[in-house]
Design a protein around this nucleic acid. Structure first.
Length: 667
DNA sequence: GATCCTCGAGTTCT
DNA sequence: CTCGAGGATC
């Protein structure tokens, strides 16, 4: 692609990037005039050749205009932004240029600091008293936010002596994560709107016209730069500046550190990156500044950024994308789950094109519509989510998503039980999607564990009407399997062997695999233990099923109804006839063993054994193994890379065992 | 009746 | 991992 088409694509990309900075980060990096210039050029290209117009082109939307309600403040010394580097190579190039300009061969001393995800501010103290605070704005003029900044507790109204006659310090106002989450939780409880991320929360709080509202917001600030200073010589290094700021009582990052050369910078970057999620505030990268002021002065400035400092960004974990459509998937139990199909977007290190919206209420709460521009996040947790819709960019005429009346797969009526979040297809096993998902569940690792029977194979088998129920799987021939696409003789033989292996199973696995509503792994085990055999369970009435621990009226009714169905009874007989067997279990009332009465939670990665093996070893000794940490948990076994569960255990003061500790205990 | 503890179900990508 | 909801407990 060359010529106008390539240029148009480039312009769209640039504009999207600026939109992202504007809407998501609230931190535009180009003046409005530059944005307008790019937009004008794109419009001209598209007017000359309408074929160049794409649906997601920024020319196709209605623009919103930012309001200005605060008094303007001119910055005597411009507030510059920083140039960004996104990788090691670009950082090396930056360092090389600095060396060349300085005519210096030895490694340079840098001060490395976290780049906070907040709002840059300039705060002035005259004779030690806080006089004025301003946002960066476009760099030469910002907004007067003195009243709001005064409410930030970590920021002194009066500097500690000896304070210079005048000090304009520059820093970042931000919202610590704990405060952000608390504030959003409270807002949600009151039914108010929540903030998309800490950055927007900080920006919104600072722009509050009513300073009493800002005062209630958990804002904080850290300082790192100098605007003006009078009555005292400016420090001759960045380290000296940080020391001065600290000495007059201003908050300064504890993470700031002097490092030597590019290698020192990279080491700092990797270290901070690894600890990023454990920091109490959100950061989007690292800033390196050449330490010595004499060197800073010799390097000077580019048009709008200093040549002696650079921001090294972490890969973004939020990005903008466009919703192609919202589809409804049908699950094993018939649940209709809305899924947003997105324009593929690279976020958090992977390309995301599908995002679940959980249920229809969630869709309406976030008000996601086809064609909407949305903010997609894939943060520490793996599963991407739609954080919010950028309302300003909604295409005209976009209609709200509605729950389908009929199942999109089989056309059966969709029913939504009053008070329940989920809507269900009533088709049961007549619905192809439900049959397919039920088979996949039956074959899954924790059920019959049929290796090689993945979604593609099952989809084919169901589509060709070769398999309708689990028992049909065991009647498949090598020839039938080998006829499937992407399935050769070898794979077919492997799958048959896996099917053969799966015939020797256990009662809990079978019960789980049948897919009775509300019967998962744990409940299946409890039922198996209590009744000992499938026959005993099938013969039991609702009341006796309720006597199983943790089974109440709802679950008991589902179990009884399942086995009352003639189709299910036939299906089970067919499985037995196909040769599926499982040993009966000895019914046991309560567990005994050395660890009886103790509850364990296993988290993280173990090295010498799998989590399943650890679980079995514990259960064999009479312990309970649960999935969630609470006051009732006796021990948490934490392998490497343990996450929130370990944190929760520490918070609740629950003893934590490492892998060795677990071994000792088992011995 | 309220609250806490669990379990179940659904989901993404490499 | 998160959310919703069932079950147990006070």
């Amino acid at each position: 692609m060359t010529g106008p088409a390539a240029r148009a694509a480039w312009l769209r990309e640039q504009l999207a990037l600026h939109d992202y900075r504007y809407y998501v980060l609230d931190d535009p990096q180009v003046p409005d005039a530059e944005y307008d210039r790019l937009m004008r050029e794109l419009r001209q290209l598209e007017a000359a050749d309408p074929q160049l117009v794409t649906a997601d082109s920024p020319t196709q939307r209605v623009a919103g205009s930012p309001g200005a309600a605060f008094r303007a403040v001119a910055h005597t010394v411009p507030m510059l932004s920083l140039d960004n580097v996104f990788n090691e190579e670009e950082l090396r190039a930056f360092d090389r240029r600095a060396h060349e300009r300085l005519g210096e061969d030895a490694p340079l001393t840098y001060v490395a600091e976290p780049k906070l995800d907040g709002l840059a501010v300039a705060v002035t103290w005259r004779d030690g008293l806080l006089e004025r605070a301003a946002t960066r704005g476009d760099g030469s003029t910002g907004e007067d936010v003195t009243a709001n900044v005064r409410t930030i507790r970590s920021l002194p109204q009066r500097l500690r002596a000896p304070a210079p006659a005048l000090l304009e310090a520059r820093g970042e106002v931000f919202m610590p994560l704990a405060g952000f989450e608390r504030m959003n939780r409270e807002a949600r409880e009151r039914g108010e709107k929540v903030f998309v991320n800490p950055r927007n929360a900080a920006a919104g709080s600072l722009r509050q016209l009513d300073a009493r509202i800002s005062a209630a917001r958990p804002l904080a600030a850290l300082f790192y730069g100098l605007g003006r200073i009078e009555g005292l010589a400016a420090p001759d290094s960045q380290q000296g500046l940080l020391a001065l700021l600290r000495s007059v009582g201003l908050p300064v990052s504890k993470e700031a550190r002097a490092v030597q050369g590019v290698e020192g910078c990279l080491e700092y970057y990797r270290d901070l990156g690894a600890r990023r999620s454990a920091l109490p505030y959100q950061i989007d990268g690292v800033v390196y500044k050449i330490d010595r002021r004499s060197e800073q002065e010799r390097l000077g400035f580019l048009s709008r950024a200093p040549r002696w400092a650079v921001a090294h960004k972490f890969p973004a974990d939020e990005a903008l994308s466009v919703v192609r459509e919202v589809e409804f998937q049908v699950g094993r139990t018939g649940t209709l789950t809305p899924v947003a199909r997105l324009e593929p977007v690279f976020v958090g290190g992977v390309t995301v094109s599908n995002v679940t919206l959980h249920n229809i209420d969630e869709v309406h709460r976030k008000d996601v519509r086809s064609g909407d521009t949305v903010i997609v996040r894939r943060a520490g947790d793996v599963i991407p989510e739609i954080v919010a819709v950028v309302i300003e960019r909604r295409p005209p005429g976009a209609a709200p998503v509605t729950l389908p009346q009929c199942c999109p797969v089989c056309g059966s009526v969709v029913l939504r039980v009053e008070g329940e979040a989920a809507a269900r297809c009533t088709g049961g096993f007549t619905c192809r999607a439900q049959r397919q998902e039920a088979l996949l569940h039956f074959a899954s690792r924790r059920a019959l564990d049929i290796e090689g029977l993945g979604d593609k194979v099952v989809e084919q088998l169901v589509e060709r009407n070769e398999v309708a129920s689990p028992a049909d799987l065991y009647r498949l021939s090598a020839a039938q399997l080998a006829a499937l696409p992407r399935m050769g003789e070898k794979s077919a033989a492997n799958l048959l062997a896996a099917l053969e292996r799966s015939k020797h199973t256990t009662l809990p696995r079978l019960l789980f695999g049948l897919g009775i509503r509300d019967v998962g792994e744990v409940t299946a085990l409890a039922l198996a233990r209590h009744f000992g055999s499938l026959e005993a369970l099938m013969a039991a009435d609702e009341d006796s099923i309720q006597r199983v621990p943790d089974v109440g009226p709802v679950v008991a009714a589902h179990v009884a109804a399942f086995f009352a169905s003639a189709a299910h009874r036939t299906g089970i007989r067919a499985l037995q006839e196909a040769g599926v067997t499982w040993p009966d279990m000895v019914p046991q009332a309560a567990a005994d063993g050395v660890l009886a009465g103790r509850t364990f939670v296993i988290t993280g990665t173990l090295t010498g054994m799998t989590r399943e093996q650890a679980q079995q070893a514990l259960v064999a000794r009479g312990a309970r193994v649960s999935n969630s940490v609470s006051k009732k948990t006796s021990y948490v076994v934490a392998g490497s890379d343990a996450g929130l569960k370990l944190a929760k255990a520490q918070e609740l003061g629950i003893p934590v065992l490492d892998e060795q500790g677990l071994r000792d205990l088992l011995r």
